[in-house]
Design a binder for these strands. Structure first.
Length: 876
RNA sequence: AGGCCCCUAGCUCAGUUGGUUAGAGCGCCACCUUGACACGGUGGAGGUCAGCGGUUCGAGCCCGCUGGGGCCUACCA
């Protein structure tokens, strides 16, 4: 049946073939079925500009595992995919393309530029989706959404208008984080703080009407050009007398007041005197408001000094101006000191530009009323965050949340649906009004700002399902069940979806959030191009196959960071190969297809068969349980251990004597074939969510009734298959085989040397079992003979395993030094343990307080150890 | 500064509500080309569970302290 299969598993063509089969067969698309229980999940939409990196590979592998598992478990399953328009990132890419051609976006103008971006999206925007397919992602691509699609855009406008009408969106002049490179405002959480080795300067400010000088410390001397005060602490005795007087701002020669502000100034820090620049520092801005200070902006939106900074500086870049300011201070002897200084500086992560705090007019979401219900939903368990330790992070952020700056001075994105008329009236509406509703002016212009990209992705779980319309998709699949994403977007995305979802749909958008860790290299280092430790998922899929990559990602996913190395993938590629070859073996023997195979009659089964089915059943239970808890590591490891170390290492080897006709009747062989088929079939189905390609390839050869393994039922544990008695006996057989192999190796014999084994079994049923199964011992331990309850010859090697005494008759009394040492060590260990057990059993408190099962276990262990020690003594 | 997490074999990690003898993968050593597989098989070496103290009949697991590492948030003139 399978002679044509190569001895090595070659993933490449197989993967492509089956993916097409699934996609063309519409296996990823759920039915619009209201009767069957549903399972739904939305993808964290990757940026259209994205190329699949290892983080995508991880999060989408985990989603696919859950989705395939649920689908096979009978749920009407939707995995809804999509991409994010990624305002800044996408605009930057197209901008750069244009620059190569010597064009600036300003040459094109807004409309033409946006057209260009759409063109770019049409050409390259599907790249990431094609790459997700290579991974095996079983998302319903017929429902692929894009955050700038008409439907999603309508949802965005709807939400904006509603929030505005409810008084939760406002426009105001405020201090915001400004990126001079991207020339847009960004929100607080988009600012990345980095420790920077810089300098701190001490600058003298002369006083008006006095020779006295006040010294201030600053890391940003260029902002002094916009200073409008000096501040000291009101209780600081050093400076009390100066409060209310005036200083002269060096270079500019402006008179500025000396004020007292207990909030701004920490007398312990620096010199205790602070320069106040209300237009370019957040704290100074607030101090300015408190003290009624003027704001003098000196840095423009491109990060260049403005006229107000003085003719000498105007037009210079802010960092260039810093040097110039220092030079001038040095000339005038006002630069008192320069020290090395490390402080954290805010960057815009997208473009690596230092953020400039600036006062500008922006749109904001008043967030507190949205945050409150979102906090409650997690607190009362409506939404469960896994791992739970993230909850405190979530609460901490949500409880101290600041209003959200949502306007961006970009062209690519959802243009804010606010309209200004010639008379300055503002109208916020779904569609552009023909005339101003307030004054009738027909001159209405739309706001030029666009919305933060996260505003639209915050609606993703429902905007993608047709909301605000009451569509079948929305009715059937919303709310979703689980969200799987990286912890790095807990605030950016997850929190916003919860807030928007609760407010607009009245329901939590999902009931569970699984936050996966960051993929790191094998030593826990972040992957980065400069370190050269980046693993490209497409490369490793080519090298090891998608199944091996997926399995590796799954088995290293706990709740924390994931240390990844190519050598691991190699290991799991080997596992795929093992599956391949075990299946080859099975296919060589199996004579029937699943379709025509009769159900297994449990009563006919031999112990060894009951044992493997019982073990598989245990594995099945554990895999289902682990997946329910998002323990991808446990689930994958359970299958790995079962398949390789129980099914391959033991069961297949134990079935060989029967399958190859060395033992038993033709009926025995037929039954063994049936069990082999059963175990392989169940194992493949169990494994399918983790390794979809290889399992489909093999399973198709087994001839199941379903058209694909991906719609075959997922195995569930069945109590009928439990068999503890079989487990007890088979563990003993395994332990005896291992003991023989061990003794053989320790005495320097080779596997070719065969010996006679004695087994002592007191209970008649056990004795019968060992007699019946002596062929297993003979075959796997390579023995000449197995004698149950006979008298071993003198000089035999004795041992006790799993409460059974055994003795091996070696042809000569070859006792190596290693063997003697080993016996000594074994004896010592057993005696030590026996002492401990005896002590424990002698302890009244233990016997009284410990559960009876534990006490009983200790008794059993005591007698086993005694027997073992006695036997080992005979070997000396 | 506040919060969270981590320290278990050479490396990377598991270790369920405290219950015998602490596991896995990779790596290492020795033997084996045995009819599915050398991307294999068999056997083996390797751990004072970071340290100290406490609770308990019993602690890798619970509590406290100390040391080391990481992350997040806030602040840093």
């Amino acid at each position: 049946m399978a002679d044509e299969l190569p001895t090595r598993y070659e993933p490449a063509q197989i993967e492509r073939r089956w993916y097409e089969f699934w996609e063309n067969g519409e296996f990823f698309t759920p039915l619009l079925d209201r009767e069957r229980p549903k399972f739904s999940i939305v993808i964290p939409p990757p940026n259209v500009t994205g190329r699949l990196h290892i983080g995508h590979a991880l999060v989408n592998t985990l989603q696919d595992i859950i989705v395939r598992w649920k689908r096979m478990s009978g749920f009407n399953t939707l995995w809804l995919p999509g991409t994010d328009h990624a305002g800044i990132a996408t605009q930057m890419i197209v901008d750069r393309e244009l620059q190569k051609q010597g064009i600036s976006r300003f040459d094109l103008g807004r409309e033409k530029f946006v057209e260009k971006v759409w063109e770019w999206k049409e050409s390259y925007g599907h790249q990431i989706i094609d790459q997700l397919k290579r991974l095996g992602a079983s998302a319903d691509w017929t429902r692929t959404r894009f955050t700038l699609d008409e439907g999603l855009s309508r949802a965005v406008r709807y939400v904006f208008v509603k929030l505005y009408e409810d008084g939760l969106i406002y426009r105001d002049l405020a201090m915001v984080n400004w990126c001079p490179f991207c020339r847009t405002a960004i929100s607080d959480i988009e600012v990345e703080y980095r420790e920077l080795n810089g300098k701190i300067y001490q600058i003298d400010y002369p006083l008006v009407d006095s020779d006295h000088r006040l010294t201030v410390a600053t890391t940003r001397p260029e902002t002094m050009l916009g200073d409008t005060a000096l501040a000291v602490h009101p209780d600081d005795d050093r400076y009390k007398d100066f409060i209310g007087r005036e200083a002269i701002l060096p270079i500019v020669n402006r008179r500025i007041p000396i004020i007292a502000d207990p909030i701004l100034v920490d007398p312990q820090f620096g010199t205790g005197v602070v320069k106040v620049t209300p237009a370019h520092d957040k704290n100074d801005y607030e101090a300015g408001k408190r003290n009624g200070l003027p704001e003098i902006p000196v840095i423009d939106e491109a990060g260049r000094m403005m006229e107000a900074a003085g003719a000498e500086f105007a037009g210079r870049d802010r960092f260039d101006a810093r040097l110039k300011v220092l030079e001038r201070l040095r000339e005038s002897g006002l630069l008192r000191d320069t020290k090395d200084y490390t402080n954290s500086v805010g960057f815009h992560g997208k473009c690596d530009t230092i953020i400039e705090p600036m006062i500008s007019r922006q749109w904001f979401v008043k967030i507190e009323p949205l945050a409150r219900p979102a906090i409650d939903a997690v607190r009362n368990g409506t939404i469960q965050i896994i791992p739970q330790s993230w909850e405190s992070t979530y609460f901490n952020w949500m409880e101290n949340i600041h209003d959200w700056t949502i306007s961006r001075q970009l062209w690519w994105g959802h243009r804010i649906p606010a309209y200004y008329c010639a008379n300055g009236h503002v109208t916020v509406a779904m569609e552009q009004p023909d005339a101003c509703p307030q004054c009738g002016s027909s001159e209405v212009r739309q706001e030029t700002d666009v919305l933060d990209t996260w505003f639209s992705s915050g609606l993703f779980p429902f905007s993608t399902m047709g909301w605000p319309d009451d569509t079948p998709d929305y009715q059937i699949f919303y709310p979703t069940d689980v969200l799987i994403t990286g912890f790095d977007i807990l605030f950016f995305w997850v929190a916003r979806m919860i807030m928007f979802g609760l407010r607009f749909t009245g329901k939590a958008p999902f009931s569970q959030v699984f936050l996966n860790g960051l993929v790191r290299d094998e030593h826990g280092q972040k992957m980065s191009k400069t370190k050269g430790n980046v693993i490209d998922p497409l490369d490793v899929i080519d090298e090891f196959g998608a199944d091996a990559v997926r399995f590796t990602l799954a088995i290293f996913t706990s709740g924390r960071d994931i240390p990844l190395a190519k050598t691991r993938m190699q290991g799991y590629a080997a596992f795929a190969n093992k599956i391949w070859n075990a299946s080859r073996f099975a296919l060589m023997h199996i004579d029937r297809k699943l379709q025509s195979a009769k159900p297994i009659q449990r009563d006919d089964l031999k112990t060894v068969e009951r044992w493997i089915l019982s073990r598989l059943n245990d594995a099945t239970r554990n895999v289902n349980k682990s997946l329910s808890a998002f323990r991808f590591d446990e689930a994958s490891n359970t299958i790995y251990q079962f398949f390789w170390h129980e099914f391959c290492d033991w069961y297949i080897e134990m079935a060989k004597p029967v399958l190859l006709g060395r033992h038993g009747s033709p009926d025995d062989a037929a039954r063994a074939r049936r069990v082999l088929l059963e175990v392989l079939d169940r194992s493949l189905r169990l494994l399918h969510p983790f390794m979809p390609f290889i399992t489909e390839e093999i399973w198709q050869k087994l001839g199941g009734v379903e058209p694909s393994i991906m719609v075959a039922p997922y195995p569930i544990a069945e109590e009928l298959l439990e068999d503890r008695e079989a487990a007890r006996l088979m563990e003993a057989v395994k332990a005896m085989i291992t003991a023989v192999r061990n003794a053989r190796a320790e005495r320097g014999f080779t596997p070719k040397d065969r010996f006679k084994l004695h087994v002592r079994a007191e209970a008649p049923r056990d004795a019968k079992f060992f007699e019946d199964h002596s062929y297993l011992l003979m075959d796997l331990a390579r023995l000449t003979d197995v004698v149950v309850n006979g008298e071993p010859a003198t000089g035999a090697h004795h041992d006790v395993v799993e409460a059974f005494s055994i003795a091996i008759e070696f042809p000569e009394r070859v006792i190596t030094k290693e063997q003697i040492e080993r016996t000594q060590r074994e004896l010592e260990k057993s005696r030590k343990e026996l002492d401990a057990v005896v002590t424990r059993l002698g302890n009244e408190q233990f016997v009284r307080n410990a559960p009876p099962a534990v006490v009983e276990q200790a008794h059993a262990r005591q007698s086993e150890l005694r027997a073992r020690i006695e036997k080992l003594m005979q070997n000396q």
